[in-house]
Design a protein around this nucleic acid. Sequence first.
DNA 1: CTGCCTGCAAACTCTTTGCACGAAT
DNA 2: ATTCGTGCAAAGAGTTTGCAGGCAG
Lengths: 153, 153
Amino acid sequence: MSIAPAREKFRHYLTQKGLRVTNQRLAIFDAAFNRKEHFTAEQLLDYARSIDDSVSRATVYRTLPIMTESALLREVDIGTGEKFYLPILGDSTQVAQVVCVDCDRIFEISAPFMEWYGSTVSSKLGLTPVSQRLQVSANCDTFRKTGTCPRRA
Amino acid sequence: MSIAPAREKFRHYLTQKGLRVTNQRLAIFDAAFNRKEHFTAEQLLDYARSIDDSVSRATVYRTLPIMTESALLREVDIGTGEKFYLPILGDSTQVAQVVCVDCDRIFEISAPFMEWYGSTVSSKLGLTPVSQRLQVSANCDTFRKTGTCPRRA
DNA sequence: CTGCCTGCAAACTCTTTGCACGAAT
DNA sequence: ATTCGTGCAAAGAGTTTGCAGGCAG
């Protein structure tokens, strides 16, 4: 899903839930969907303010749950204290995150059989899975050889 | 690994690292290894204080990394803000966590092929995996049928 | 107009840290 | 005797919330 239909989906979700379509929410949406890598709430605040400088931190934090609930953003928690977000661009299949500990970057990879695995594992406990996540921490091969990660910021 | 050899492993790890064997560290160790379910730092503080009431929150937080680095405890982050810990009882194979959203309990299940999967996925990016985790959120079947989770606290 | 939405700042939760005292080696 | 470990309380990071005023519907 590219940005235009996603924007429409967002407006539709808000209206259908009885929520209001405000300039701040739209600015936050646009800021998020112009990102190509994972971003934090704080980064999103900066991006959104460059579109509409009236956006506040509180509104960013109040809007993020709306965008994750409406399946526009994926929330990624890699256990570093802050959460990361990424626009969901169509492929809403199962994805795994690979976190490079050298360049601190997060890569997403489709993980088709994850869902089956979650079901298998859960059914043994009498549980029905609602979501699953696979996260891999990894070293950069180039970094280990040359001491420099080509992707490092 | 049951508690006695684990305790010895802990003492050995401390000594070998030039760290001191204090009553507080031993109390925290014992408190942790008498637990059968996942616990938080705050809960561990309570348990440890019932053994040695001089134990402080700071020391618990300073001791937890020592116990995870020495592979005595596994740290589990399910994205709820606080971290959970569980004694590693011998089977240090790959495990996945299944989090029941009804009873808030965390179950651990061996996930033998997780490691292979992490490698496969990472090598495509030129990365070498160092660790991986699979977490499944699930509903309790009994809860959905009867409105009561048999395992709920 | 009505009531949700907003920005601000304070509050909150979990964890970390500076300091002076105390205990292990 | 050294030096590391400790408790206390304050600081820190990220996120949430109470409130009075503002704007969407």
